[in-house]
Structures are given as structure tokens and as C-alpha cells.
Design a protein around this nucleic acid. Structure first.
Lengths: 224, 224
DNA sequence: TTAAACATGATAGTATTACTATTGTTTAAT
DNA sequence: ATTAAACAATAGTAATACTATCATGTTTAA
């Protein structure tokens, strides 16, 4: 079975839809690798242009600037996560089992070759962990929010919050717990790898460790 | 009683100690206000120089670049937080009460005019919330860590973790819970203000809301 | 007291970044 | 065969992130 998954992302994020051309797809694909290797701060359209043998001006025809490109990638990622949550929880009846599944999705690597764009999953994962907060922890957050650029994040947060409420209908902070899960999944993985004294990771891998910590935290929070 | 509190920050963070001159102090003080109003991305030494009527070159004699200046401010802040935790928990015997005190310190505004540098506390608070993660969520994190630039953060994390362990000596993730507390205190405040659908804040203020959410979360996590 | 050391200001200059604009060529669609 | 779009190539601008030099005024130490 060969299928293509794609998500419509907010069209104000790009000037020309990168999905509509080979070059556009290459821009997104290569930018994931280049942001991964340089960090968003050192990443420039000039460097990306050199990498894929085109010109700066060409890339500017697709994206206004690198922040929009990052947001495009994040929108895609958040939509994909929400899709995975929906898909994998579909046939589960016990809410606690759904929650386990969600924790696995949040902490473990994206499934390799899952019929979607052939982005480098390891790189995508790592730029999400390192760069995603930079998309909203900025002065311009309110303007970006007005343009609905965080809608997929809110949707993901809401659908996880629903499961949390299924586990305990009287829990008073489902959305905060949901966003804390998402953020903590990233932060603890980063800490476990780079600043391990901010964690209690030992010989476990960062993903497995984060999974266990979060599972303990969330289930206790929801206990009646 | 009039006293001056100061913390020794890692001397590799500056080229010339800003505490040793009026101009140096002004650079730090004004940079807090300017980073607050522009965001670290749009903040430049040139703009700061204009603000305090000096030259770019002069500021470069104090700090290598704006990232180091931000780290300097963060080091000061983390040290101050650790000091506050130590001070305010000193005469408390019941570990749960210590924890309450720590949650208040983390979520509520810094005490105004507490005998320390007359930085704008509101601005300092808000740049911590918005900018602090950018100091370590970068490619260079390992090199910065080798130079001990995150030592005060780790110290703060460790001293909170000690209190968590006092509450429940068998809790297996005290440092992760501690770093999660610190990060979540920031993230939820930011969300409550700018992206409220990622929270369940209602008519409560962002600080009070974050305090209540975190108190619930942490005490449940530590319950035996 | 006098010279050295130091702090700052003034000015200049460079490479890179973050764009915008123009023009010409190739490709694809009608 | 004509036309429109996509892209490459080139140029140019303002701002950023620095580095360097030199003059001047101020402390300090011999």
C-alpha cells in the first residue's frame, strides 16, 4: 500500500505553496536538515539556497522569512501529531490506554516511512524539541495568533485534553495539563541529552526516560 | 534597613564586570527594559547604545554579544531565585510548607525593592518568562554548559529537588519534577496571557492560575 | 608630580543578513 | 505559435554584528 498524506497548512504561512512544486518540496525538506545542523539562529535563506543550488530570491518567493518557514514546519508537525493521536486512539475504548498511546506518540520517534513526505524524521524531531518554543515565545505572538498560526497546536492540545477528561471528568485543568505534557515531553528530552543534571535520567535513553517520568506525572495528576 | 545584595556571576560571561562601573550597571539595567520592549531577536547593542547615550563599541567592551548579556541576566536571576528559596524556607520545618513557599516564589512577582539592584522587576519577570529558554535551546548548548553558564540554574533546580525529596523521599524523579516546575511556571503564565486556549485560565490572573495548577500537579505527583 | 594605565567617545570599516527589484531565459499550458 | 508562469542571475539597500584605531579625559601608583 502506497499512500500520500498531506495536511493543509494555513495559507498565510507561505507566499507560494511549497507542495505545488518539486523545488518547493525540496526547500522544506532541506530546510529541516539545515535548521537541524545550524540551529534556527544561524540558518539563513542564503545558506539554504547554496545547499539546494538555487538563489535566495527564489526561496523568498515561497516564504516571507525563516520564521514563517519554521512555523510552516511546526504547523505541519502539529497537524501530523493530531492525526496520529486520532488514528492510534480510534479503536481503543479504555481512556487510560488512549493516554498511554498519546504519551508514546509524544515521546517516541515518529514512525519511519509512514507514507508521508520523506522528511528526515530524526532531524524533524530534534528541531521540534529545540526550536518549537521560539515560534511563540516572541513579542509578535499576539499578531501571529490572530492569523491563526497556532491553531494546529491548540487543536492538538484540545484533543489530548479530551482524553484527559475522559480519564477523569472532574479534573479542573485538562488543557493546561495537555500543554504541559507536550512542552515537558520536549524539555525533558532536551535536558536528558544536554543538561542531565536537570533530570534523573540514568542509563535509560532520553525518550524512554521522558516517557516514564511523564506517565507517572500525568496519571497521578488525574487520579481521583 | 538599607542593604545591597549582589551575586557573583560567572566571570566568563562578561569582558569587563558591569558591576564595577556606573555605565556597566546602566547597561544591564537598560538592557532589561529594552529586551522587554523589543524581544531578544530585535534587541541590538546599537539600539541599547542610543538608549543610554553611548556607543556600540563601548558596550562591546562589557559583553561579547547579546546572548552573553542575556545569560548574564539569567544567571543573576537564577542565583537570586535560589537565594530567595533558601531565605524563605529557612525557618519552615514542614516540607510541604516549604514547597508552598517555593511555588509562590516561582509564580508570583519578585518582591519590589528588596534591597537589590533597582532593576525593573516587572520587565525582568517578563523577559525571564519569554526569553529564558532561548539561552539553552541552541546548538551551542554543550559548549556553554562546559563553561558552567547554567550552573545557577542547576543549583536552583537541585535545591528545589531537595525539598521535593523531603516531602517524599521515595519519589524517583525529583530533579525532573523540579525543572518541570520551573519551566511550567513560565510556560503557563505565558500561555495564560497570550494563548489562553492552551490553559484553563478563566477570571483568575495568570500568576494565581499558574500557582493553583502547579500546586495541584506537584502535590499529587509527590503523594505517597 | 608625573607618567602610566584605564575608561570612554568618536569614527571608520568589514562581512553577513535580510531583504527588494529587474531582467532575461526556460518550461508548460492553450 | 503565443502566452504566462517559474526560475535563475544579478544588483542593490539598510541593518546587524562585529573589529580596529585614535584621541581625550580621569585615576592611580611610582
Amino acid at each position: 500500500m502506497d499512500f500520500q498524506l498531506s495536511f493543509k497548512v494555513n495559507e498565510h504561512l507561505y507566499l507560494k505553496d511549497p507542495e505545488t512544486s518539486e523545488l518547493g518540496k525540496q526547500i522544506v525538506k532541506e530546510s529541516i536538515d539545515l535548521i537541524h545542523s545550524l540551529g534556527i539562529e544561524h540558518f539563513t535563506f542564503k545558506k539554504l539556497a547554496v545547499q539546494i543550488n538555487t538563489t535566495e530570491a527564489t526561496i523568498y518567493r515561497y516564504f516571507e522569512n525563516k520564521q514563517k518557514l519554521l512555523l510552516y514546519i511546526l504547523n505541519w508537525y502539529w497537524s501530523y501529531m493530531a492525526f496520529l493521536v486520532m488514528l492510534k486512539c480510534q479503536n481503543i475504548n479504555i481512556p487510560e490506554d488512549k493516554l498511554i498511546t498519546i504519551l508514546e506518540i509524544l515521546t517516541h520517534d515518529l514512525p519511519e516511512r509512514s507514507g508521508l513526505q520523506e522528511y528526515n524524521h530524526k532531524h524533524l524531531n530534534e528541531i521540534i524539541v529545540r526550536e518549537s518554543t521560539k515560534a511563540y515565545l516572541i513579542r509578535e505572538v499576539n499578531e501571529l495568533n490572530k492569523e491563526d498560526f497556532f491553531k494546529p497546536y491548540k487543536a492538538l492540545c484540545a484533543s489530548i485534553a479530551d482524553v484527559l477528561l475522559e480519564c477523569n471528568p472532574s479534573y479542573p485543568y485538562p488543557r493546561s495539563l495537555s500543554s504541559t505534557m507536550i512542552e515537558t515531553a520536549h524539555a525533558q528530552q532536551f535536558f536528558a541529552e544536554h543538561l542531565p543534571r536537570l533530570t534523573n535520567v540514568q542509563d535509560l535513553g532520553k525518550r524512554e526516560y521522558t516517557y516514564l517520568f511523564l506517565k507517572d506525572l500525568i496519571f497521578k495528576a488525574l487520579a481521583k
